[in-house]
Nucleic acid binder design. Structure first.
Lengths: 328, 328
DNA sequence: AAACATGATGGAATCGTTTCCATGAACACG
DNA sequence: CGTGTTCATGGAAACGATTCCATCATGTTT
């Protein structure tokens, strides 16, 4: 099969015009109505599709948008990615996906690859801190952070859920139910949430009840089990993500703790299975898909100056995993 | 900031050689040891990264691999994508992700974009049938199907879970428990599974108990609820995916059916929440991640001829959602 | 009617890389 | 010593698009 791609040259020849004219017509430049029509007709007839390769090389950027998430297996990031994809599709741009495993080094590696590919726009859930991002930002990479911003963030726009309000609501709800010893089970990059947690809890804060896991399921389970075993006196736990929540449910079951009788639970991120769980989990819903969509929108808006950031609302969804403090 | 990228020309100049030599050294061609060393030294010192843009244009393909899945939000496809990403990362190749929503038209659109980007390799969960894929295959796109092959499949290699064995095992298990009226709740592209289901069930098959949903959550719920309401005499249901399983659990709960007392359930695809569910769901586990990894491996092996396909084993994981047939 | 503004048009340069080909040096063999 | 072979090397073409710039035609103003 000798089917070479049809190039702009073929179109130009078939339409009896120069390549420059074809390019102009196709990218909306000025051209006389009759030429435009002829070129368009020939182009569709020949089924001409401009090669992104040639264009990219010429204008020194590949148009597409890079997407860096810690773990595409995590339902939250799956939904976030879906939002980015939806926006990118509307704009006709391809999305290059990479996972960082919440590891700064791996993140740097992925950024290197994106740069090599000529990608000029990135939506990222940052793993490294601002210091690590600074050099790559200086390369001219248009960046928008999603879900969390780099610690000590520079002026990179970020699309975030309103963690502050979410944590406050959760803490208020739990203290309102009479709970005093409330634990926070956190994941990578949740320093700010914890700060708010401390602040909201005030005098009740107990540093031993603040525990961090790394990104993996194993790590989450270990942290949850350790917490519950080490401090059986706690009566409520706030899990900072669906992985952490899953781990907490598992660990509680393992220790024969009854939810919500022995232990009240709130989980960040509403996932479909929260309703299937027994008891159904009370959660703080985050608009993951919106976060992705808005971030993609922001990163594509290259012309006008971008707002510093967007804060999207969270919502407490009360189901059945929280109850009054148990009599101790 | 006037920081132009360092090009191969800069390296050549700094090393006192021609650009051709630099290119050869960097891509493993022949060169004298001392030149090679000098060029390498200069390249690292200048932090030179070859631009994929130039290379791609020259060799008419973009190296990267395209990944087309119905829905990145679905845990199964998330894991599949993770496998593809892992393999691609090992090979240093970028992955362009697109979602098809199990819609042939949208799939065609995504393929068009990939072609435009010069992508020459695709791992896809096909939505359209073989007839739809034929023209794109003729363009020279190296394709590997994952999870399912296009109906009336041509000679495209495919990496599949052993559905046949999975369905048989599930049916055997349910009939062994005494069930006679067993339903299949299917999703897009599960014709082959249903065929096996019919075959395994033999004389027990009841066409009314075979129901299909489209890809969405709503559609899955509608199908499940409709099935359970219309045929309250059925005693077991086999759900063809985690979305379908979720819908079935929800619908059963809505109708106050007790699992497994009133209704036994088996779900295709083991997801983390299957264990959290109440009762924990008996499932047929599929190696989603492996499927993705192997598919990527296959699509990257361009030289040697590829095997026609790979079949990966499934496994019945017995939990608590199946019981003996209820006394009717 | 001359001068000038406007707009359509095509040739050619350009992006950064790979690869073909010619050149020249070094070396081996008869 | 001459011829042939091997090898490293650099110049230049090619890939397919965009875009600068010169050219030419047309219409407008003085």
């Amino acid at each position: 099969m000798n089917t070479r791609r049809t190039t702009i040259k073929d179109v130009a020849e078939a339409a009896g015009v120069g390549v420059a004219t074809v390019s102009r017509v196709l990218s909306g430049g000025s051209a006389s109505p009759e030429t435009r029509e002829r070129v368009l007709a020939v182009a569709t007839q020949l089924d001409y599709r401009p090669s992104a390769l040639g264009r990219n090389l010429r204008q020194q950027r590949s148009g597409g948008i890079g997407l860096l998430v810690p773990d595409i297996t995590d339902s939250f990031y799956g939904r976030l990615a879906d939002g980015v994809l939806a926006c990118a599709r509307a704009a006709g741009e391809p999305v290059i996906l990479g996972t960082t495993g919440d590891d700064a080094e791996r993140e740097a590696e992925q950024i290197g690859m994106l740069l090599e590919q000529g990608v000029g726009r990135v939506v990222a859930v940052p793993a490294g801190d601002a210091e690590i991002w600074a050099p790559t930002l200086r390369t001219g990479l248009t960046t928008v952070f999603a879900h969390r911003s780099a610690a000590g963030h520079g002026d990179v726009p970020a699309v975030l859920a309103d963690d502050r309000s979410g944590v406050r609501t959760a803490v208020d709800y739990l203290t309102g139910l009479g709970h005093r010893r409330i634990a926070y089970l956190g994941g990578p990059g949740q320093e700010q949430r914890v700060a708010v947690f401390r602040q909201a809890l005030g005098a009740l804060v107990d540093e031993e009840l603040i525990v961090f896991a790394r990104g993996s399921r194993d790590s989450a389970y270990a942290a949850a089990a350790g917490l519950l075993q080490h401090r059986p006196d706690l009566t409520a736990v706030l899990a900072g993500g669906n992985l952490l929540g899953e781990a907490a449910v598992l660990a509680a079951r393992e220790l024969d703790l009854r939810v919500p009788k022995d232990l009240s639970m709130i989980m960040f991120d509403d996932v479909p299975w929260a309703e299937l769980c027994s008891p159904p989990l009370t959660v703080i819903a985050q608009p993951a898909q919106d976060i992705g969509y808005r971030a993609a929108e922001l990163v594509l808006r290259e012309g006008g100056r971008r707002p510093r950031g967007v804060l999207l609302p969270t919502e407490l969804v009360v189901r059945g995993s929280c109850g009054p403090r148990r009599a101790s």
